[in-house]
Simulated assay, not measured.
Amino acid sequence: MKVLLYLEGEGALSKSGIGRAIKHQERALQMAGQAYTTNPDDDYDMVHLNTYGLKSWSLMKKAQKAGKKVIMHGHSTEEDFRDSFIGSNLVSPLFKWWLCRFYKQADAIITPTPYSKRLIEGYGIGDKPVIALSNGIELAKYKPDTAKEAAFREYFGLSANQPVVICAGLYFMRKGIDDFVKVAEQMPEVRFIWFGDIAKWMIPAKVRRIVGTDHPANVTFAGYIKGPVFEGAMSGADAFFFPSREETEGIVVLEALASHQHVVLRDIPVYEDWLTDEAVEFGQDVPSFVAALERVLSGQSRKTEAGFAIAQSRDLEIIAEQLQQAYETIYQT
C-alpha cells in the first residue's frame, strides 16, 4: 500500500498548524516505514487529504473513481474558523457546509482529538468513521538546549534575569491575541513575545491595530521564526501562555509540553480529554491568566514534568504506528 499525502496551497499554509501537521504526518510515515508520496501524479493506493480546496475535491473524486480510498484530515471545524479572517463569522455556516461535503464523501476522517471528533460527528455526516489521532510531537527536536536558549535571548536582547512569556499562533482573535496584550499590560515588568504572522490584509482592523501600535512596550510581535531561536524560546522562556479560545488540538501546546515548559492555557473543551491542571495552569479571563503566570514566575507552580509526560504519550513514534494502523484498517474495509 502506498499513500499520497496531499496539501493544497502548501506555500500559503506552511506557517499554519495545518502546514506543520502534514510535516508531522510525513515524518511519521518515514518512522513507520510506510510507503508514501506527496506527488499526485505518482502511483498510489490511498490518498490522505489535508485541505479543502477545489484541487483537493477534484483529486478526491478522481481517486474514488479509480477505486482508491480517501481519508480526509479533520484539521478544521466551523468553530475554529470563526474569529479568524475578515468576514469569517459571516461565512462560517458556508464554510461548515463546504467542510461537510468533503467529510461526507471521504471513506474516513482522521482528526486530532476526541473533542474535534465529537464536533465533526455532530455535523450530520452519516456513519463515516472518525478516528481521533493526535498530530504528535517529535520529542528530540524540543529537548532543552542551552545553545538554542542563548540564541533566543541574544536575538531579543534579553538579560539573564529578564522574565519572559511567549506565545505562538496566527494573528487571530480566536487565538486570544487581545487577552495576551491585556495580560501584558498588567505585568509591565515581564517581556511578552508573540511568534507567528499572517498577511495583514486578511485580518480585521482591530487585530491589525493590536499588532501595529495598540500594545504596550513590553509586547513584541516577532513574526514567523523557526529553528534554534524558536526552539530555544520554547524551553528558555519562563512560560508559554496560549489564551486561544478554540482549537482542534494545538500543536504549539505539544511543542511547549515537549520543551519542559510551564504552560498557561485558557480552559476550553478541547483540552478536557488529555490535559489536567496537574500538567498545566488554566485560566479563563485576564485576572486568572495574570494569577496563573504569577504562580509560574514566582516558582509556586511546578508542573513541567507532568506536562512532559503528556507530550511523551504523543511522541511521533507512537503516533506513527497508530497512523499506519489506521491506514491499514481503512484500506481493508
Rank of each mutant, 00 (worst) to 15 (best):
M1A: 11
M1F: 10
K2H: 11
K2Q: 15
V3A: 05
V3G: 03
Y6M: 08
L7H: 09
A12K: 07
L13Y: 04
S16G: 03
E26M: 09
A28M: 10
M31H: 05
A32S: 10
Q34K: 03
Y36V: 13
T37F: 00
T37E: 02
T38S: 15
D41W: 10
D43I: 07
D43V: 04
D45W: 00
M46L: 12
M46E: 04
L49D: 02
N50H: 01
G53K: 00
W57Y: 03
K61R: 10
K65N: 03
A66M: 06
H73A: 13
T77V: 15
D80Q: 04
N89H: 07
S92W: 15
K96M: 06
W97A: 14
W98L: 05
R101A: 13
Y103P: 00
Q105H: 12
D107I: 14
I109T: 13
Y115F: 10
Y115P: 00
R118I: 11
I120C: 01
Y123D: 02
I125W: 00
V130E: 00
S134Q: 08
A140L: 03
D145I: 10
A147C: 05
K148C: 14
E149W: 03
A150V: 01
S159H: 09
C167W: 07
M173I: 13
K175A: 08
D178F: 00
F180L: 11
V183K: 06
P188I: 08
F192M: 05
W194N: 02
W194V: 00
G196M: 03
A205W: 11
R208Q: 12
R208S: 06
G212V: 04
A217R: 11
A217N: 10
N218P: 00
A222M: 14
I225C: 09
I225P: 15
G227P: 01
P228E: 13
G232L: 15
G232M: 12
A233D: 08
M234K: 11
G236H: 10
G236E: 10
D238L: 09
F240D: 07
F242E: 09
S244N: 05
E247H: 07
E247Q: 05
G250L: 02
I251H: 06
V253F: 07
V253H: 04
V253K: 05
E255I: 08
A258C: 03
S259C: 13
Q261F: 12
V264T: 03
V264L: 15
L265K: 09
D267Y: 13
V270L: 04
V270E: 08
D273R: 14
W274Q: 03
L275A: 14
L275Y: 10
T276P: 00
V280L: 14
D285T: 07
P287D: 11
S288T: 14
F289C: 01
A291T: 06
R295T: 12
L297C: 02
K303I: 07
T304C: 04
T304H: 03
E305D: 11
G307V: 12
R314C: 13
Q324Y: 00
Q325W: 10
A326R: 08
T329M: 12
I330A: 08
T333Y: 15
T333R: 14
